[in-house]
Design a protein around this nucleic acid. Structure first.
Length: 577
DNA sequence: ACGGATTGCCGTATCGGCCAAATGGCCGA
């Protein structure tokens, strides 16, 4: 849990910096905290072991002060500065920083001038027109803040799949180990693989409910028991996630799993179908309407069989044609994790990655991949210290040698180039043409209108050298909405220009979403499921992408990195003669 | 607060876009 340590320390130092800035502390002191936070986030080894080895202060940007604070945070989860700041400042200020377009300076301004200390007060002031009167503010900024508050509220309350899933799996694992539990599974939107989750549903099959319930409410992660009945209880975890547990008789488990997995629309359609056959489906089983005889319910297969359908994978259960497809025996043979043969998007120390290229390639090989693309940022994204044309050429040569040295894996010399505001790329086309894999992405100018953004992206696709459009909507789950873009027009252009679309599998992105994946399939645009790894352990972390692709009805043939290396080359050759 | 040179003290991430204010602060990647 080394990585967790580093992340925690970095987050707290960054939080201290933000709060210090709001309090009006010395700007360079603030900057030092930010720098230390950044340095710790970028560490390749756990901060705790560097503290023990007394090597932490060797890192540029980390001096005696940062070492002391890191040590406090590792031990106690906080530090004196943060404790003091939380005493000095109202709690709501930190939440205000999560509003897009607001940084420490603006929050300070609102707090100092108007005493605004939380989101509600900010919203009230904006509605009353008080913000526009402040220096460096105006009607436009004020309106933007209202929009951003609304977007923030819309997002909050739902948790990214990648955050909820590990917590769910951990609970399932503990419950499965109990002697009295026959089956334990996650249900709900989490099982369907929705990109964000409201709460978790855990189902247990057991003859007796007390053992599982006792174990559940006493889990270390449980902060609060909200409700406890005979077979159902709800808790809130320390993370804020709500988890509902239901204990069922084994004979009803399949019916309950189906019922609680949903979606609601899917369930309604299945029940309607049952009704027409003279059956009744409830969370307890399948029953004959006239005789009330129980026809099944122990497994989901029994539920589907009762209405004359094959098993429908949870990811498809949205009543978006899956029942009709199942009836016609035309369900897709959905992509599986094992189908993927390579990772096509990752970063190394040549830009903002934490591990060097050799290490990443070796790791890709150890994961059993046939090929891997190294796709560092280009210089157009200055914050990543990316590669310019000369740097890219030099890296390409280095990667050729690494491929020979490591052996047994194809190493593609790639790049993640910037799509500039005018739709041009930040590296010359003749340099990009020599690369083995070119991702083009938008990392700037997010606020342009849909028409302009769409034209911008399509211009990049039409450059003739782009293989894949990176994270096509730019969204960050729970943090930032997608920028305005006409994805249908982009898909049409991608089809015409022979460019693939990325399904960026990073937990914070899942971009493309499932619906657009499905549309890509219909339009005939290949999807590339990539990790966008910036560290060793992120390489090959494609599971959330696989789930999303399955929700988008994708089969392995629709996913470019389930093809062989030769097939990919042949596909590229159609565009690059 | 950090780091390096002036060993006491001084300068300190990159860069474009946006908006408010008429050149500059703030934000975000």
């Amino acid at each position: 849990m080394a990585q967790h340590d580093n992340k925690t320390v970095a987050e707290i130092l960054a939080r201290v910096a933000d709060l210090m800035e709001i309090r009006g502390d010395n700007a360079f002191r603030v900057r030092a905290f930010r720098r230390a936070s950044q340095a710790i986030e970028n560490l390749a080894e756990p901060v705790s072991s560097m503290l023990e080895a007394k090597t932490l202060s060797d890192i540029p940007g980390i001096g005696a002060g940062a070492v002391a604070r890191a040590s406090q945070i590792v031990e106690s989860g906080t530090c004196d500065d943060l404790v003091q700041l939380e005493k000095d400042l109202p709690k709501g200020l930190f939440e205000m920083l999560r509003i897009g377009g607001l940084g420490p300076k603006k929050v300070k301004l609102f707090y100092d001038e108007l005493g605004i200390a939380d989101l509600d007060a900010l919203e009230t002031a904006a509605r009353a027109g008080h913000l526009a009167a402040l220096p460096r503010m105006g009607a436009k900024s004020q309106a933007k803040i209202l929009d951003e508050i609304e977007a923030f509220r819309r997002r909050s309350g739902r948790i990214p799949l990648g955050v909820a899933l590990p917590q769910g799996h951990a609970i399932v694992e503990v419950l499965r180990a109990l002697p009295g539990t026959e089956r334990v599974d996650l249900a709900g939107s989490c099982r369907r693989g929705r990109e964000t989750i409201g709460d978790l549903d855990v189902l247990v099959a057991a003859d007796e409910s007390q053992e599982a319930m006792d174990c559940f409410v006493n889990l270390p992660a449980v902060a609060e028991v909200m409700l406890r009945g005979d077979t159902k209880c709800s808790v809130r975890l320390d993370s804020g996630l709500q988890v509902d547990l239901r204990v069922l008789e084994p004979a009803s488990f399949g019916a309950a799993l189906h019922y609680f997995t949903g979606s609601k629309h899917h369930n309604i359609a299945v029940r309607d179908r049952a009704k027409r056959k003279g059956l009744r489906i409830s969370e307890y089983g399948v029953f004959c309407e006239s005789t009330n005889e129980r026809l099944g319910g122990a497994s989901e297969e029994e539920i589907f069989a009762a209405v004359g359908l094959p098993f429908i994978p949870p990811e498809l259960r949205e009543n978006r044609g899956e029942i009709e497809a199942a009836e016609a025996q035309k369900l897709p043979r959905l992509l599986e994790a094992g189908d993927l043969r390579g990772d096509m998007h990752l970063h190394t120390t040549d830009s903002d990655g934490k591990a060097d290229a050799v290490t990443m390639v070796r790791h890709a090989k150890s994961l059993g991949f046939d090929y891997v693309a190294i796709t560092d940022h280009s210089f157009g994204l200055p914050v990543t210290q990316g590669l310019d044309a000369a740097g890219l050429v030099a890296q390409r040569e280095r990667l050729r040698r690494i491929q020979e040295e490591v052996g047994g894996i194809e190493v593609l010399a790639g790049v993640e180039a910037e799509i500039l505001a005018d739709g041009s790329l930040d590296l010359p086309v003749d340099v990009l043409r020599e690369q083995d894999w070119v991702i083009a992405s938008v990392h700037s100018g997010f606020s342009m209108g849909s028409e302009e953004m769409t034209a911008r992206v399509i211009a990049a696709l039409d450059s003739g050298v782009v293989d894949c459009l990176g994270h096509p909507t730019g969204r960050l789950l729970g943090e930032r909405d997608a920028y305005a873009i006409d994805l249908e027009a982009v898909l049409q252009a991608a089809s015409r220009a022979h460019v693939a679309m990325e399904l960026n599998a990073a937990p914070s992105r899942l971009d493309l979403n499932a619906n657009t994946c499905r549309r890509a399939r219909e339009v005939g645009v290949p999807v590339v499921i990539s990790s966008d790894a910036h560290a060793l352990e992120q390489l090959g972390a494609l599971e959330l992408g696989v789930t999303t692709a399955r929700r988008g009805w994708l089969e392995s043939k629709h996913v470019l990195n389930s093809w062989s290396y030769e097939q990919i080359q042949a596909w590229r050759a159609q565009r690059l003669p």
